[in-house]
Design a protein around this nucleic acid. Structure first.
Lengths: 248, 248
DNA sequence: ATTCATCTTTGATACAGATCAAGACCGGAA
DNA sequence: TTCCGGTCTTGATCTGTATCAAAGATGAAT
């Protein structure tokens, strides 16, 4: 089951695909060398659990490639996704010894990990790391708050449109795509995972995706490959401020 | 309308009620002096808006006393509260020039403000401030994520119970009260504000508060003064993990 | 090629919470 | 004292989403 591959997928930080976006983004060459000393890579398969909420957690790290989810579960099984971890996102919290959420890889994934104690140590002495982490945490806080509006006040259709917008936007920026023509991407989530993110049931997700397709807002090839002919239409469905259509 | 009182309510940092919990918590005496140079107090009346989302924001600051809310609003008027600002909480984001949310004082409130530019400057050179801000931001992120579970997956009754638990817990820690006997506090929010926090309508809030009262989970004197005879019962209603009842 | 598990769609029905509507309460102003 | 605006409660009804149920894709394993 837990077939984790410990083979050292070692890599030079300078060739790292997330070098300029991760927690190490601001580090100087010498600071990077310090990090290099305490880093190691871990590889996870799709579906594999990285860590369970409440477990002892003696590392922190960055997602290098692939996607993971952060979820919270109630005793009776209701679950809510509280974060989507994309390449360059940070996992774990300095100063805390146990995981606060379940972390699950939804695709094959590679993480760049640091042992927690040396990392915390290094952070004390390297403002560049703390500064970058603060910036990233503030961004995540904004994202979480935006999501609170989605969860608390949007209809099922608006929720789906919001999620698709976010994924489309991210893919466009990652792949340097444009947002003014048609946008195409693969859904990295099952209907159930989408439901857990949106506070819906998987049936409602399925129905609303079908409805958006019927209305021509999106096109589907297979169940996962999505094309958005006109992003403005999708953003309208999401109920977001489109003030003059400045897509950013 | 906007009767803001600019009278300098100046105060020595050493006598400050939030000295050890705010963004300045870790500062040494000399660092505190630097902050003292750029700080000024502002007083707001209940109901007054501190800043509108999108407005230019040339300060950051801490809530010294009173309570404020952070809300997001859609064009059609739906609103969602995304944060409750209590004494010692930080307002504003270094590195951003406009406000991301509406900030409204719900009680009379005093803020300790810093002009943004000098503060950012000081932060660069004072790791103690950045460190503390990181810690506070991580805590807020956790709180936001906990709230995502509430918004996405809890029933109306559970939502009310969750909100009451949070307020009760905070009041108990602020006033050094115990949590094993009856807990008493004043609701700092109107029914409508509670609804905006919980993603409900004010009618549903009212009904569920009445229901909790009828079931003996809480007692009311007037509309705002609440007594919780047994916190464990309330926590059960909130659907939270009560694992052995370790109240923290 | 068949089987099987997983994911997804679609339909029928139930229900929690929204919406619409009417008063009740309460403190402050005249 | 009465009036009045804001806040809160309660009732009747409607509706969006959940729930229950079944069957259609898809793809990997045999």
């Amino acid at each position: 089951m837990l077939k984790e591959d410990h083979l050292s997928v070692t890599q030079d930080c300078n060739d790292c695909p997330i070098r300029h976006r991760a927690v190490c983004a601001r580090c100087e060459t010498n600071e990077l060398e310090r990090l290099e000393d305490i880093k190691y890579y871990r590889r996870f398969e799709a579906g594999q659990t990285v860590i369970w909420s409440g477990d002892r957690m003696d590392f922190v790290g960055s997602v290098v490639s692939g996607i993971a989810t952060l979820t919270q579960t109630m005793e009776d099984g209701r679950t809510q996704m509280v974060g989507l971890l994309l390449p360059s996102d940070f996992v774990g919290r300095p100063g805390r010894s146990t995981a606060a959420y379940d972390v699950v890889a939804t695709t094959d994934m590679v993480m760049c990990c640091f042992r927690k104690a040396p990392f915390e140590d290094l952070m004390e002495r390297t403002p560049h790391i703390a500064q970058r982490l603060l910036q990233m945490t503030l961004d995540e806080l904004d994202a979480a708050r935006e999501w609170m509006l989605v969860l608390g006040r949007k209809t099922a259709r608006e929720k789906i449109a919001s999620l698709l917008s976010i994924i489309a936007r991210r893919d466009a920026t990652l792949n340097m795509g444009r947002l003014d023509g048609p946008v195409t991407f693969d859904l990295p989530l099952t209907r159930e995972a989408m439901a857990d993110y949106l506070g819906l049931t998987l049936e409602t997700v399925s129905r609303q995706v079908s409805a958006l397709k019927k209305d021509g807002i999106i096109t589907l090839e297979g169940k996962r490959h999505v094309t958005v002919p006109d992003m403005t239409l999708l953003l309208e469905e999401a109920g977001d401020d489109t003030d003059g259509g400045m897509l950013v």
